[in-house]
Design a protein around this nucleic acid. Structure first.
Lengths: 198, 198, 198, 198
DNA sequence: TATGAATGAGAATTCATTCAT
DNA sequence: TATGAATGAATTCTCATTCAT
């Protein structure tokens, strides 16, 4: 077998394991997930996982890291500098909803506030959250300077937006809500921009 | 010892255990919490816990249930029928923030999206959440009928409000945010009612 | 139960485990010994061992340490300062042979040059051996100064004595040799003092 | 490739593996040695070892057997019938010391009293030791008959000699002792022949 | 023939739960 | 009733060995 092909195989099996791990971590959570179940799900032997990952924690960290990266990439608003804040927020809601609808398992892994909290992971998680907040604050302050939005406490707005996102994955994953993404994104944005006052 | 006194003692020891359990579950999470640590924290023997609770899961369920009850009671808006929706929402934010500030351990137990989704607990959790949403929807619809707020999707507003609440406990518990409860509650309500449009 | 009695029980169970461990380590060696077998041998459950010892290594270290202490104490020549070197050496041989005859299992643990060689244990082992050599050298040099023995290389004599000891446990434990302790001790001493020249 | 050449290759690879195995068993001991490390050390694939040896145990047995053969051959006193016992013993000490100095790895394998006493290996080990003792006894008895040495217990002398040998490899391998082989061999022989009496 | 990816039996260890006191 | 010593099921991880290529 060519070296190229070998590496593809190696990579492919890694992916196979990661995919299985996402599913198992997603339905069981970290502590209830069994390495044996992941192996079974991947259709491989228990020991094989350890050829690709050092430990259960390592595997989980990679699953979590990748899931979050995929999620954050799916939001992709940084490059859309030409858009108005209103449009940006609408887009964030829209892509969030679509991501949750299309990736129920990844979603569960990303948003399931896991206990594991290995110190390293905790720090990483914290940093990621802070970064997201910083980014949002920045965008908000610019829009405020530009007069697009009135003078408000940016932190309060951050809470409203990230809060709505955080509230919006479980109903989707549990299939309680399966409405139209465009509409809901629009309605949320509308509330935030226009207020609800009668 | 009188039967009355005995029962008081019995009750008191139950409380003792529950208090210790809140602290331990709060700082460790369900899976990392050790029955021995709870017993130690309560100043009793490990075996004694089993005189009062069937299992670790049972104990956790009661801790979680009670914590949520205390939290929901602290919100206490049902009886305040005379208030406007605006005032009600402001009050919910205010009491939420105060509760989190004053009961960091309970808060962590209530909001820590635990993995241990034992089927029964999951169902109970689900029901509790639904009930909260129904209540909110009802209040919103009434306000809409009364013309206090304009015609919007009540579900979207529910998401915005519960989302903001869900986003607002971690910064408090982690002591990242320790600002003025009144101000933040006001600002959040203001955003929701007036919108942010410039 | 009185606190006194409790501690006795606790101590007694520790001893029970240590005894069982000596037997198992003695017949299997460190790596082939199974914690389960030790538990079985002690007539207790697997988990109980861990109530008294942190790990297999810890248990082994204590078994080894105690066995060696018992052995070295059985040699007990330090306090016999009045004796001549010849008598001391004869006594060392004699007590060594008797110890091996009477404590076959301890003997195997003490002399089985185990692989384990955890760094800490290695250092400890090394130190113990050095100490023994130093002690011997000292005694030898004194006897040389006193003219009891002629001028020889003390290190060479140390090798001859410790060597004979080291060669003399296996035949005893394997029951190849079961002769008279007094005679053999005398003969060995005789060879060392008088030489074998015709 | 000619059949002859093939067999040479086959033999060469066997040797390659055995050499690597000596080094690894020497520095790790049997249980801590990893087949993978041996393969790596030999510069071949893990699976290849199994083309030449049935199992780890088999490989170790061959390593041990060969190492011992090399050691015993290095002593080579059988053919030296013309020599006096004194000279023979001196020669044994001398060649032992030199062997240990020059073959630290082999030495460790030969003398490291391994735990892995697989029954077959144990029996073989036992037989080898007995044979050595028989040979020594024979030589001793002849010398006694010839009047070269006085009437002593041959077993006791065997213990003294093999004991000194057994005590003399570790200090060399650990590089604690790195003196002159000739001198030490002479001194040991001197003690055994002349005794130490003042 | 050589390989190394895959395997799974097996070992140490943990900890909720039991139960004799 | 309260206790904590004892327990063993369950879990992670290792590594000799196999076998498809």
């Amino acid at each position: 077998m060519s070296r190229m092909r070998e590496m593809d195989d190696k990579k492919a099996k890694r992916e196979l394991i990661l995919d299985a791990a996402v599913r198992v971590f997603s339905r069981r959570g970290y502590h209830e997930a069994r390495m044996e179940e992941i192996a079974l799900e991947a259709g491989i032997g228990k020991g094989t996982i350890y050829e690709y990952f050092d430990s259960k924690l390592t595997l989980f960290q990679e699953v979590l890291g990748r899931s979050r990266d995929i999620y954050y990439n799916s939001l992709a608003i940084e490059n859309e500098n030409s858009l108005s804040l209103r449009e940006k927020i609408r887009l964030v809601f829209l892509s969030h909803i679509r991501f949750c609808q299309e990736n129920k398992e990844l979603t569960r892994v990303v948003f399931w506030d896991t206990e594991i909290m290995d110190e390293e992971l905790k720090a990483w998680s914290y940093e990621k959250r802070k970064e997201k907040e910083r980014m949002l604050s920045e965008v908000i302050e610019k829009a405020m300077e530009a007069g697009e939005i009135r003078g408000i406490n940016p932190y309060a707005l951050t809470l409203v937006i990230t809060g709505a996102l955080g509230a919006l994955w479980l109903p989707i994953v549990l299939e309680e809500w399966s409405g139209d993404a465009e509409s809901l994104a629009g309605e949320l944005t509308d509330i935030i921009f226009e207020g609800i006052k009668g």
